[in-house]
């Protein structure tokens, strides 16, 4: 069509590894990765190399869990139950959990829901009980969401049409899409990616935000 350069390698997310779980979500129980039952997983490792691996492991566990959960998990606080393994009687301390979230933010796998509070909390020190500990989970990165949105618009022939965000995320037309139910904040960052690429335009303000795809 008119945008060959922007067309992704696949129009449908069928090639994605997690597609199978997403098309029929939550019919089978979530299989925890092996690190979940490894006791040292719940103690912050002082060796920096080991700690980096540990934080990445956590990131992997959280994202896999969030993508698999029903309903899907989009936001997470350091006090979430995912950080506790009752069978092992281990819990990752909230301060350490916050480090995990910070690690995810750093690697583009999450974003603080309140960036100013997060910055403030980081400056204040270890105090994570206050604001700033919550993140948006990017088990799909904004780029991936943007691609899905673009693909859907393309597939349904709605280019150059203005769609409200509510239509996109909550409308019946998208009920079979992965981005259905996506929080507005995450969707906005995905649209922002498209805007940067010149493939979309944001219209209006507040709740009635509209998006026009090119």
């Amino acid at each position: 069509m008119a945008s060959p350069a922007a067309a992704g390698p696949s129009l449908l997310p069928t090639t994605d590894i997690l597609t199978t779980t997403n098309t029929s979500p939550n019919t089978d129980a979530f299989v925890y990765p092996p690190q979940y039952s490894f006791p040292p997983f719940y103690t912050l490792q002082p060796n920096l190399t080991t700690r980096a691996s540990q934080l990445s492991s956590w990131s992997g566990l959280i994202l896999a869990y969030a993508a698999h959960a029903n309903p899907r998990l989009y936001r997470l606080t350091p006090a979430h139950s995912i950080f506790t393994n009752t069978a092992l009687r281990r819990t990752l301390a909230p301060t350490d959990a916050r480090l995990v979230l910070a690690h995810m933010v750093e690697h583009g796998r999450a974003a603080w829901t309140d960036p100013t509070a997060a910055t403030k909390a980081r400056k204040a020190g270890a105090g994570s009980d206050g604001g700033g500990g919550e993140v948006w989970l990017y088990w799909r990165t904004p780029e991936e969401w943007a691609q899905q949105l673009g693909s859907w618009v393309e597939a349904t022939g709605q280019r150059n049409t203005v769609l409200t965000l509510y239509e996109l995320l909550e409308g019946d037309a998208t009920s079979r899409e992965e981005f259905h139910g996506l929080p507005v904040e995450v969707a906005k960052s995905a649209v922002a990616v498209l805007v940067r690429r010149g493939r979309a335009q944001m219209l209006g303000e507040g709740d009635g935000v509209g998006v026009k795809f090119f």
């Binding site: 040292p40 691996s53 992997g60």
Partner: peptide
């Protein structure tokens, strides 16, 4: 690697590098 819990301070073989290799999300 270490495990600090009510059971005490224990050491395990470091499995973290191996865990990460077959991880979908980094």
């Amino acid at each position: 690697c270490r495990d600090i819990s009510p059971d005490g301070f224990r050491f395990y073989i470091n499995l973290f590098p191996e865990i990460n290799q077959d991880d979908v999300y980094l």
